[in-house]
Simulated assay, not measured.
Amino acid sequence: MIRTALLVSALATMMASDSKDLDKALAGRVAGNAETCLSTSRIGSPQVIDDHTLLYRDGGRIWRNDLPDACPGLDNDVIVVTEVFGGQLCRGDLFYTLERSGIGIPGQRCRLGAFVPWDKVKPSGAK
């Protein structure tokens, strides 16, 4: 019973931390219309928020990708390896993870969702 309570407590703490990371990254921004693909030449490596959410940066814009399914093992301590074809990263493309300190055994393959742009809110009267 105590182990179960500790596990639930640990999971709740992790989820709260993930939520804070996402809130911090998207603070002062508004969502735009989802896109199917992004050019890989404009984005860097993703920031892992949780096992359902990745963030990509493109200059001042942040692209949020909510995965269609949870990706086991997806956390801040992995390298995300994406299988890219044709210079674009698209909804439905596959990726897997590698542990940074591990022996290089790939994790489960997971699918990307749509890419939603989040842009900074312009102050009233700004053009």
Results as ranks from 00 to 15, higher is better:
39 S>E: 14
121 V>D: 03
27 A>Q: 11
39 S>I: 00
74 L>Y: 07
17 S>Q: 14
9 S>I: 01
67 L>S: 03
74 L>N: 07
38 L>C: 01
122 K>A: 15
104 G>L: 09
61 R>S: 10
9 S>T: 10
2 I>G: 13
18 D>I: 06
119 D>V: 10
14 M>T: 12
67 L>C: 03
74 L>I: 06
77 D>Y: 05
31 A>W: 02
67 L>H: 02
121 V>G: 03
124 S>F: 11
35 E>T: 10
117 P>Y: 06
32 G>I: 07
15 M>C: 04
64 R>A: 12
82 T>S: 15
84 V>T: 15
20 K>Y: 10
114 A>W: 06
124 S>W: 06
59 G>D: 14
92 G>Q: 09
49 I>P: 00
40 T>Y: 02
105 I>K: 08
54 L>M: 11
86 G>Q: 14
45 S>R: 13
40 T>E: 08
89 L>S: 13
87 G>T: 13
105 I>T: 13
83 E>Y: 03
66 D>F: 00
23 D>T: 11
64 R>C: 09
5 A>E: 07
88 Q>M: 09
30 V>Y: 06
86 G>P: 11
12 A>R: 11
51 D>F: 00
55 L>T: 07
12 A>E: 14
2 I>V: 13
60 G>F: 05
92 G>W: 07
77 D>R: 08
76 N>P: 00
19 S>C: 02
101 S>Y: 10
99 E>D: 15
109 R>S: 13
81 V>W: 02
29 R>V: 02
34 A>D: 15
33 N>C: 02
53 T>V: 15
85 F>R: 14
38 L>F: 01
54 L>S: 08
21 D>C: 05
51 D>R: 10
99 E>K: 15
60 G>W: 02
120 K>G: 10
110 C>M: 02
71 C>F: 05
111 R>N: 05
105 I>Q: 06
12 A>T: 12
62 I>W: 01
39 S>W: 03
7 L>F: 02
55 L>C: 09
106 P>K: 07
98 L>V: 03
90 C>T: 06
35 E>V: 10
39 S>R: 13
20 K>S: 13
